[in-house]
Write a protein that binds this DNA or RNA. Sequence first.
DNA 1: GAAGCGTGGTG
DNA 2: TCACCAAGCTT
Length: 321
Amino acid sequence: MNISYAQIHKNIHFWYQKYGRLDLPWRNTKDAYEIYLSEVMLQQTQVKTVLERYYFPFLKKFPTLKALGSAPLDDVLKMWEGLGYYSRAKNLHKTASMVSTLPEEIEALKKLPGIGENTAHAVAAFAFKKPVPVMEANVKRILCRLHKLKTPTDKKLWEVAYTLVDTNNPFDYNQAMMDIGATVCRVKDPSCDLCPLHSICQGKEEPALYPTKKKRLVPTREEHIMLSVYNEKLSLTQRSGKFLHGLWGFESIEVPLCAAEYIGEVRHAYTHFKLKCKVYVYHEVNKAEKDYFSIEEIVKLAVSKVDDKIVKLYLDTIQRY
DNA sequence: GAAGCGTGGTG
DNA sequence: TCACCAAGCTT
């Protein structure tokens, strides 16, 4: 039985009108900046997190691309605190300072920091109604199952995506594909019977085979964290490398001082390693050449999750006395 | 192409 | 407790 693309597009659109997440705020604005911001926040991040905790406060603080570009980076990082992948905030800020309005063409969008292949396609399709597909995790999984692809290259996936895209209504089509991937063509236990692509899916008999993911070993790293305390204030430094860039945190040392008091252990799991921190407190007799902050001041800094855990451990410790 | 880069939810 | 994963980009 031959099914036309026109019929599949009709199926997808019907499904979207009935089951799609039509009320997401970035689907109900024509402001390219608001759409672009959602795309960056949603990179490797679940809709729920962005929707409930970050999208609206960020837009309230930085309502326009111009407002964002002229704000201090530290203010942007503070609004990004806890969202992770902090280079996104840095690149977002840099892009906002580079352009007054977002370009409409994919090639021009990709030249901006933090905008890769998928985000460029997404902004083009959603903000500027270009007839192009998006190709993020959800769509990728659908296409792999559709064509029984186990480990395709991105090049191959883009080819397939461009073949399938509904050029007459790229906005609804792309939003629909992401929703179908998120709610029907799930990683585990997909609902193939309810899928609008059922009739053309080659992988529906064994969806778990497509795609196959490679396993990565996650090493464990141990660190000694030294809390330098002076006059009831703690020393923090601003990180400069690529890891947790721009965030404030505590000093890691090779060998703890003998005079330091061990107060406990903090664990944190990152994507590519696990961290075990033994935390020590050292009370400086004289003020060291460091920046010291009271708890009230620390709250105003952008701090990563692990350093937040360390603060809590410290507060629990001093509360016992 | 592969590794580095965060955090929270899920089973 | 742990592995896996989510609207990916950069180097």
